[in-house]
C-alpha cells in the first residue's frame, strides 16, 4: 500500500517534470531555418552533380577524354567523347553527357579523374517537369553557360 502510494506520487511528479520540460522549450526560440527565405551555406565538400572544370591558365576544359570516369561509374551515367585537335598531342573533350536521373552522387568519377577535370557543383534545387532535362545533361554546354554568367 505504502509502495503503491509512493509510486503514484513519483508518477505524478514525473508527469509534472515532463510538462516543465516542454514548457521550458516553449519559451525558447524556434530552431527551424525558414528555408526559402533563409538559406544555409553549403559545406565546401557538398556533393552536387558533377561539372567540368576549366584550366586556370589556358581557360580550356581540363578533360582529356580518357574515359576513366565513364568506366568507373557504377550507374553507367557518363558518356564522354573526345577528339585530337589539330596540332595537339592530347585529346580534348567534345561531348560529355551525364544522365543525372541515374547518378547516385557517389563521387567515384571525381576521384578517379587523372587530371582533376571534374568537380561537384552546389546545385541542389533541381527540378523539371520533363525527364529529358536531366536524362542527358550536356556538361560542356553547362560549362559554357557557367562562364557566361
Amino acid at each position: 500500500m505504502v509502495a503503491a502510494i509512493k509510486e503514484f506520487c513519483l508518477g505524478l511528479h514525473s508527469l509534472a517534470t515532463g510538462l516543465a520540460v516542454t514548457l521550458e522549450q516553449f519559451f525558447r526560440r524556434p530552431v527551424t531555418v525558414h528555408y526559402p527565405w533563409e538559406v544555409l551555406e553549403l559545406p565546401a565538400r557538398y556533393r552536387g552533380h558533377i561539372v567540368l572544370v576549366r584550366d586556370e591558365q589556358t581557360g580550356r576544359l581540363r578533360c582529356i577524354a580518357c574515359k576513366m570516369c565513364e568506366r568507373i561509374c557504377p550507374s553507367d551515367c557518363i558518356v564522354v567523347e573526345g577528339a585530337k585537335l589539330p596540332g595537339e598531342s592530347r585529346k580534348s573533350v567534345t561531348e560529355f553527357k551525364l544522365d543525372f536521373t541515374k547518378c547516385s552522387l557517389c563521387g567515384l568519377c571525381v576521384e578517379v579523374c587523372p587530371v582533376d577535370a571534374l568537380a561537384f557543383s552546389k546545385r541542389y534545387n533541381l527540378a523539371s517537369t520533363r525527364k529529358a532535362d536531366y536524362e542527358s545533361m550536356d556538361l560542356c554546354e553547362l560549362a559554357k553557360a557557367g562562364d557566361a554568367k
Binding site: P30, T32, H34
Partner: peptide
C-alpha cells in the same frame, strides 16, 4: 502554433 512552439518550430507562417 502551440505544438510548433513546444517543438521549437515556427508553425504555419
Amino acid at each position: 502554433k502551440v505544438a510548433a512552439r513546444f517543438q521549437r518550430r515556427p508553425g504555419p507562417t
